[in-house]
Amino acid sequence: MNALTVPPTAVASATVQRRRRRLRARRAALVGWLSCTPAAIVILVLVWFGVASTIQHSFTNWNGFSADWVGMKNYVDIFASGDFFERFRTNLVFLASLPVLLVFCVSVAVVIYDHIPGWRFFRSVYYIPTVLSSAVVGMIVAVLFAPRGAINTFLGRVGLESLAQDWLGRTDTALGVLLMAFFWQSLGQGVLVFLAGLSTISPEIIEAASVDGAGWWRRLFTILLPLLAPTSAYFLLTNVVYVLVDLFSLVYVTTQGGPGGTTTPVDYTIYLKAFQEGNLGAASALSVVLLVIVFACSWFQLRLIDRIGE
C-alpha cells in the first residue's frame, strides 16, 4: 500500500484525529490552567506581591514610615563591606553538612527497612523530634549545653571534667551544637522519606545490599544510593531550602546568633536589620540577595531531578 492507494476515508480520519488531538490538548490545557488558577492567585498575591514590594524597597532607605530612593546603596553595603562570606558562613556550614545528613539518614533507613531487631520501634521514635518546633529544640539544646547545664554536669560526674566547656561560647563548638540539633530534628524526616524511596526499589536489589556480609558500606554506595537518586534529590531540595531560609527559629533560641554574632544565618540578619535596627530597606536588599541564591540552588537541583527522571 502506498499513499496513492490509501482509501479516502482513512485520510479523513487522520485529519479528524489531528483535530481531535488538538481539541483534547486544548481541553487539557484549559482544565490544567483552571486547576492551577486558585493556587497561582494565592501564591501571586500573598507571596510574589510581597517579593515585589521587597524588591522595590530594597532600593530605598525604608524604615516603615518614610522611604527615600537610595539606588544601589543597600546592595553596595552588602557586597563591599567585606563580610559577605561571613554572613553566609553559618548557612554554608549547614549546607556542607547535608551530604553527611543524607548518608546518615539513608543508612538508618536501609537498616530499618531490612527489619533489624526493633525496627518498628525505631521507625516511630526517630520522628518525634521532627514534630517539635525549632523553638523547643533550640531551648532543649541551650539548656543542656549551658555552662552549668546537664551535659557539663554529667561530664563532671563521670570524671570527664576536662571535656566540660562553654559549648555555646566558642564559634566552632556552638556550630557543632547547632548542627547536632539540626541533625536531631531532621533524622526522622529523612528516614521516612528514604523508607518511602526504598519501597520503590525491587526487593532483589535490596536483598543484594542487605546488612549481612562484608562490604555492606560499599554496596550501599555503589548500588543503593544511585537507585535512591530521585528520593535523594527531593530530600536535598527541601533541606537546601530550609538551611538557606529557615534557620532563624533554631538559632534565635539556642545561641541568639552568637558568640559574637558568628552563628548568625542570613535570615536572622534580615530579621535583625528589619526589626531591631528598623532598617527595612537594607533588610529588603539582603532578602533579595538571599532569594537569588535560593532560586539558583533550586533551579540547579530541579534540572538535576528532571534529568534523573528521564
Binding site: D166, R170, G258, P259, G260, G261, L272, E277
Partner: peptide
C-alpha cells in the same frame, strides 16, 4: 546607643570576655 551598635557591642564583648 543605636540598636545596631548595641548588638555589635554585645557580640564583640562576648569575644573579648572569652579572650578571642
Amino acid at each position: 546607643l543605636q540598636a545596631d551598635l548595641v548588638n555589635e557591642l554585645a557580640n564583640q564583648a562576648q569575644l573579648a570576655w572569652g579572650g578571642q
